[in-house]
Amino acid sequence: MKTFHCNRCSQFVFFENVLCERCSALLGYVPGLSEISAFEDAGEGEWRSLHPRAEGALYRQCHNFAVEKVCNWMIPADSPDTLCAACQLTRTIPNLSAPDNRLYWFRLETAKRRLLYTLASLGLAVQSRQDDPEHGLAFEFLEDGGDGAQVMTGHDNGLITLNIAEADDAHRERVRSAMGEPYRTLLGHFRHESGHYFFDRLIEGTRWVEPYRALFGDERADYGEALDAYYQNGPPADWGSAYISAYATMHPWEDWSETWAHYLLIVDALDTAASYGLALLPDSPDEPTLTDATPVEDASFDNLMKRWFPLTNVLNSLNRSVGVADGYPFTLATPVIDKLRFVHRVIASPVIRDAARGEPATASDTPADTAQDAP
């Protein structure tokens, strides 16, 4: 994610900020600009953007910004909508009468908006169920029932369900430890489930299926049987030689979604590093350098990988210096890199980008439509 600044006083601000700490200007995200903007009060619930690219346009706060305090996205003043494009995707929110649920809702919406930002930067903007009833995306944030019924985080035909307990840091860490996972984050859940959604939108029913199966396996294998086998027997002992995670071994769908989520992690982190002007210039010629700041949306896959390994090296070294776990607890075997390359090719394809914006990909959409390492 790139860096942002207040348009009134140039103070450095973050994607989630709603108020400039230096000049007290209202801050809000403008999806049409992909920018955090400072605003001045224009009266009658309208706000004038101070961002130079907005040219003084008027906006309103999303209802969940102005009233519920769980959002910071803005809506054009002449729009009939009361919810922003991000909040329109949430079909069910937590029961706000329960303790901590508002905090969990805030955390869920924050992670969701970060996912949407990354998808949009890659040309993968999504539509709501209201705008596209057949292919639109929706979210439900649910909690376990008092009768012992458990909510399973997952995806079903464009509906992503998340158990709100995942927004409880202590609960999520207990689950991570119990499952033997090196990494478990709320944003990671959103990235993973979006992978299932985009498999349906971009791979299924297209000529990408065969190269997909060559790398990930045949997704027509019985999912229920694969799930039972995984939880009974666990992953293969050598899973790290071909998979990004143990869970990716469960079924080709999960391998795709784990790889998809990892690709989003990589491009988001590299985008952040480039926006900060991060460079690695060690004294020793034997240590990795990092000077390339090519925008991730314009970079080839090889360029991304060349920059990724030095970045993870310094990330883990910094974490160890302050006494916390590695920020990047993964290794990328050659088959995993091949799978990541495939995800890059799919996303980079102009045909695929068009499909993601509107109609689903068709059987005529073929990997030949894009170069091996198309930017």
Score class of each variant (00 low, 15 high):
Arg357Tyr: 10
Ala246Glu: 11
Pro52Phe: 04
Leu50Asp: 03
Trp105Ile: 02
Asp268Lys: 02
Lys2Arg: 13
Ala363Glu: 11
Cys84Arg: 00
Thr118Pro: 01
Arg60Pro: 03
Ser24Ala: 08
Ile352Cys: 14
Arg201Val: 09
Cys71Gly: 07
Val346Trp: 02
Glu44His: 07
Ala269His: 06
Ser34Gln: 15
Leu115Thr: 10
Ser97Glu: 14
Leu159His: 07
Glu297Val: 12
Ala348Pro: 02
Arg48Lys: 05
Val30Thr: 13
Trp256Leu: 06
Gly136Gln: 06
Tyr117Asp: 09
Pro360Glu: 00
Met179Ser: 12
Pro94Ala: 04
Glu173Lys: 09
Leu142Met: 06
Ser97Val: 07
Cys23Leu: 01
Glu109Ser: 12
Glu204Lys: 12
Gly148Ser: 10
Ala368Asp: 15
Ala77Thr: 09
Cys9Arg: 07
Ala248Cys: 00
Tyr212Gly: 08
Ser34Val: 06
Thr370Val: 15
Trp47Ala: 06
Gly327Asn: 12
Thr289Phe: 10
Ile266Asn: 04
Ala38Tyr: 07
Ala325Cys: 02
Cys9Ser: 03
Asp369His: 10
Val324Asn: 10
Val267Tyr: 06
Asp147Gly: 15
Leu187Pro: 09
Arg345Tyr: 01
Tyr59Asn: 04
Pro285Trp: 08
Asp78Met: 02
Ser10Lys: 02
His5Lys: 05
Leu340Ile: 13
Ala54Phe: 05
Asp168Gly: 14
Ile75Val: 11
Thr185Arg: 00
Lys112Thr: 07
Trp208Ala: 06
Glu109Lys: 02
Pro76Trp: 04
Arg345Val: 14
Lys339Trp: 09
